[in-house]
Structure formats: C-alpha cells, structure tokens
C-alpha cells in the first residue's frame, strides 16, 4: 500500500524545498563566476556569457520549485479533506449496517460523502498528473545545467591563470545540478508510485 496522498504531497514539497535551496546556491555560484570572469578579462568572454545563462537557469529553477511546492501543498490539503470524507463515510456505512430504528436517516449523508469523495479524488488525480508534468519540465532545466557545466569546463581551459578557479566553478555547477536532479527524481518516484496505485484503486 502506498502512503496516503497527503504524506506523499508533503514529502514532495520537502524535496522541492531542498531543490530550491540548491538552486539559490547555484545563483550565488553564477554571481561569483561572473565577478571572476570580469577580473580575468578578455580571455573569459565566453565564460561570462555562460554565467548569465546560469543565473537565468537558477532563477527559473527557483520559480518552478516554488510553483510545484505550492501545488503540492494545495494537493496535500485536498487529500486531507478526501481522507476525512472517506473516514466519515466508512463510519456511516458501519452505522447503517447496525440497523438502528432510524439508520436510514443517514443515507443522504452517505450519498453526499461519496459524491464529495469522488470529486475530491478526481481533483487529486488531476493534481498529481499536473505535478508529474511540472517535474518533467524541471528536469529539462537540469539537463541544460549539465550542458552548461561541460561548456564551462571547455571555456575554463583557455582562461590561463584563472583556469583552476573557473574549473572549480564548473564542477560546482555540475554537482549542484546533480543534487537538484536527485531531489527531483525522488519527488518523481514518490509521485508516480502514488499515482499508479491510486489509478489501480479507482
């Protein structure tokens, strides 16, 4: 059995928060790289162009992480409502089965609960689908970051005295991208497992 959606969504939210913190670090790395490239002068024109690109990328990752985070939080709330509704419904069914004199007087509530559960669960399905798409989008950014890290290395090799420092920066970009990618992968794994199992249950 998978974890309840509200736990999955909260865990995704936590992963995305980590990714966002890493992306902030990436933005800082880009700023340092730009300062260094300016000092290094004409030999690092290529590197300077790359730093602009990294900064944009970092801010795109931050924005997207925040959006996914918000969505996941909203989903977690919805899931709690759905769970409450299911919990009430389960008890209503038990009560009706006891055949008390007026047991049928809760039939209307059972119907209302089931309708509510149905529409909440449908919303959850859509929300989970949307999260999967958003995560896929974010992973494209990580692939770009890796490409940038590679070209940074190439540019660094022609930067003379600054070569060592620029190479450290290029490695830094690659490592940060890897860590962000790790968070996204974990979020995705949580999500697709839950999504699959919910689909099978419906």
């Amino acid at each position: 059995m998978s974890a309840p959606v509200f736990i999955t969504a909260a865990s995704i939210s936590a992963e995305l928060h980590q990714a966002m913190m890493e992306a902030r670090g990436l933005a800082l790395t880009a700023k340092n790289a730009r300062a260094l490239a300016v000092r290094a002068g004409s030999r690092t024109v290529g590197f300077r162009a790359i730093t602009d690109f990294i900064e944009e990328l970092a801010s795109a990752i931050i924005q997207q992480s925040q959006a996914i985070n918000n969505d996941a939080e909203h989903l977690s709330n919805q899931a709690v409502s759905a769970w409450r509704s299911d919990m009430a419904n389960e008890r209503f069914h038990w009560v009706r089965a006891q055949n008390s004199t007026h047991a049928d007087s809760i039939s209307g509530r059972i119907l209302a609960c089931e309708q509510r559960s149905g529409s909440l669960n449908q919303e959850l399905q859509h929300g989970l689908r949307r999260l999967i798409d958003q995560l896929e989008e974010s992973r494209k950014h990580i692939r770009t970051a890796n490409l940038i890290a590679t070209s940074s290395h190439v540019e660094a090799s022609s930067a003379g005295d600054f070569r060592g420092q620029l190479e450290v920066i290029a490695d830094n970009i690659r490592e940060t991208a890897e860590r962000i990618g790790g968070h996204l992968n974990r979020a995705n794994a949580l999500l697709s497992q839950n999504h699959r199992e919910r689909k099978a249950a419906c």
Binding site: Q98, S100, H102, A103
Partner: peptide, 16 residues
Amino acid sequence: LFAPMLSAVLKYVPAE
C-alpha cells in the same frame, strides 16, 4: 466513540 454513538442515537431519533 463517534460510530457507536451515532448508531445508538439513531435508535431514538432520525439524524435530521
């Protein structure tokens, strides 16, 4: 206690 309570109460009075 909710479920046993609701069930017991419905012996005396309809929910509405």
